[in-house]
Write a protein that binds this DNA or RNA. Sequence first.
DNA 1: TTGTATGCGTTATCAT
DNA 2: ATGATAACGCATACAA
Lengths: 329, 329
Amino acid sequence: MAIPNPAPTMKDVAKEAGVALGTVSKVINGIPVGESYRLKVEAAIEKLNYRVNSYAKGLKKNKTFIIAVMVPNLINPFFCKLVNCINRSLSQRGYRMLLCATDYDPEQEQAYVIMAEQQKVDGIICLSYNPNLQVTEGLPLISIDRYFGSQIPCVASDNYGGGALAVRKLVENGCKSLAFLRVGSKLTNEPNKRKDGFINACENLDIPYVLKIIDDGVPHSEFWNFLREHLHDGKLDFDGIFCVTDSLAHLTRQALREMGLRVPEDVQIIGFDGIRRFGDMEYTCSTIVQPVEEMAEACVNMVLDKGQSQVPSLVCLPVTYAYGGTTRK
Amino acid sequence: MAIPNPAPTMKDVAKEAGVALGTVSKVINGIPVGESYRLKVEAAIEKLNYRVNSYAKGLKKNKTFIIAVMVPNLINPFFCKLVNCINRSLSQRGYRMLLCATDYDPEQEQAYVIMAEQQKVDGIICLSYNPNLQVTEGLPLISIDRYFGSQIPCVASDNYGGGALAVRKLVENGCKSLAFLRVGSKLTNEPNKRKDGFINACENLDIPYVLKIIDDGVPHSEFWNFLREHLHDGKLDFDGIFCVTDSLAHLTRQALREMGLRVPEDVQIIGFDGIRRFGDMEYTCSTIVQPVEEMAEACVNMVLDKGQSQVPSLVCLPVTYAYGGTTRK
DNA sequence: TTGTATGCGTTATCAT
DNA sequence: ATGATAACGCATACAA
């Protein structure tokens, strides 16, 4: 034989079983056929180790059971957890996942969308930093954390509520004065509402606060400078810090430690995301936990439903507080 | 119109451009055609926003540019980093990745292989815990960390050398007596060689050692018991510990801390994997770093090459030592 | 209930 | 160089 292993086709199965092509197709798709026929076909499938060619099927049915999932990378533990949960949800529904890591590059994001269109995936779930992503109408697309407009459903956690919750927890634990620390994209995305929730809660509770926001690319030493400016006689001007992510909280904690300040005795810190050590151990800091599993479920439900039923344009899911050693409780 | 958005086909493009179907195909595939034709076709493609249907193409060419990647989950940071690197390598070569998370379940692993066969992927890269995985011959498969036999190439880091390196580093840092701690699968996989390397180095250097190995499912309190047994008058019988993973090193460090022992002053610890905080910050402990990027490259090269050239049956890549706070240096 | 024929969107082989 | 046409493997409407 010249060709080593020409994968068997339905035609081969039909010949092997001594039945017609259509009959094989029916057996495979669970359409009732005569018992004796079914057995013969099943035996032939087993014998030849036949596998449906999903490309021929996809071509025919215009449905592929594949969803493209786009995230910046699989280094950040939050993205990992998100992808892990999305994968599970898709898997439970018989869907598969085409993974796209964009490295925060708008060009790559756009290229992946085009790829997904060619690939004829059944939908896209994306966490994009490209403010003007072009997508063909008709291809279901769900966005995470970024609102593109009423036509593109967005799933996010309750960032605003989370910001406020952090303030409440810090105040409950005795803080009298707070700081807000943020680093990252200045795109108007959902996570930026963490700041708004923070400010609103501080003002409602009559708590003095200070904000420090640095953009991407600025060195983290900026935070050190900020902290040092607010350090007088070995004491900070504030006794509680809300960091916009857990990783920033981690950096802040290290900086404070080097400055001789104790966490949580002198300063308390609350982060955001709910990252655990090694993915599933203790929280890395006291934190506002994003409901990742629920977010994944929501994305998957919506991307599969889209086109059938009307879907909301923004879904915000509730966050919770978790103790992780950087607060008094 | 009843149908909302019937994606344009090559036929539509041909009609729009006023040329024949074959000409369009040639333009798309970069086969030379007359300049004026090419321009007309390109204009039509642009106008209709035409995208090649990869299913029709895959059906025709029997090649899909998709590789299935199978790992237990995307919670464990090591798996995440691995998938991240594999994705990048594939992407650079114009391939896409179908992600399969198996949750350590042999049945799911087998199901995913069958799925991959149907999907007509061009190959599989898998980190499997199923000792007797069935794969159709002819479908290129590369295994990570687990040797299935000479027919299935396996990529791993130099686990044996890593175990020995850990011993050398501990001894260089003044350790006189060592312990080896392991938890996990008792399958005969590559990572189990870490123990062999450890033992061999200890015997070569004439260092006394003790082993503690617990299997999956046994509660971690077993380690506590082990450590307590070896604690006499506030001192351990050994002053250096090699843990088989960084996460185990983390647990051990916590346990020692609660027992009033200082790391690294009283006991030094070296882990394995090279996990960093939040994916890209400091190492979580002093550790033997796996060359994840090189492993990913090797897998991708081999899975794409397979069938063309002869590939080795086992590739071991060199590990390095990194300081991470749990050793004196 | 079973078999036959047509078409899905491409590529490739052939005349032109 | 360009255009018509036959496959690729499957599902399905239709005929038997």
